[in-house]
Amino acid sequence: MSLAARVTTLIVAVLAVVGGVIFVVAHYLLGGPPTVDFAAATSGQVNVTMQTDASSDPATVPDHPTWVSYFIKSPASGSWVHTTLFQVPAHTRVNVTILGYDGSTPVRNQVWGQVSGTTGGVADYGGKPVKTVNGWNGPYLIQHTFAIPSLNLSVPVEAGPATCTTGPCTNNQHSTTTFSFMTPAQPGAYRWQCFVPCGLSYLDGNGGPMQTFGYMTGNMQVVS
């Protein structure tokens, strides 16, 4: 083969490989849920409203509509965003409201039936302060936990009266769990997760949504 032919072959091969790599990398890096920013609204406190749904509308969540997931209400537009990433200012009181549209799932380890790390050490279920629930037996049934382990924050979320499968849901058939906590002074990413194995159809309930951003785990980004 001539030099020109060899070099041409080489360039074509390199372009093919580079194209493939760019395709995979782009697929990988451009994916992922968005971050809802609560840092802009600094009035001393931050109000975060979220909801849990047993499954979602395929139009809103095309990837895994059957998975149990969270939605966060955007403070800017007031619409529900399918994500588990949110950003809050450091050393600020955060008031969380979780609307439960999911049915009951027992906790695996009863220790997560205890409220810890919140202001006053309690969470309000429909307005009633609660310290400890039995996730297997009631009187309050729980569906998930909202936990930030590095802050020792763990709150069982009350199960809703009905199971809504078209998330995001806007009807009134939901439970309301509210609690407050202080964000730390140190900026950075704080993971939060659910300790109730709720990945339906995964072994021990711990696969799928439990291990995927945008569903049952995410990051609380603390900015200074």
Partner: peptide, 9 residues
């Protein structure tokens, strides 16, 4: 199969 329908995979 139910585990396929529910898990979405």
């Amino acid at each position: 199969y139910s585990q396929v329908v529910n898990s979405g995979q």
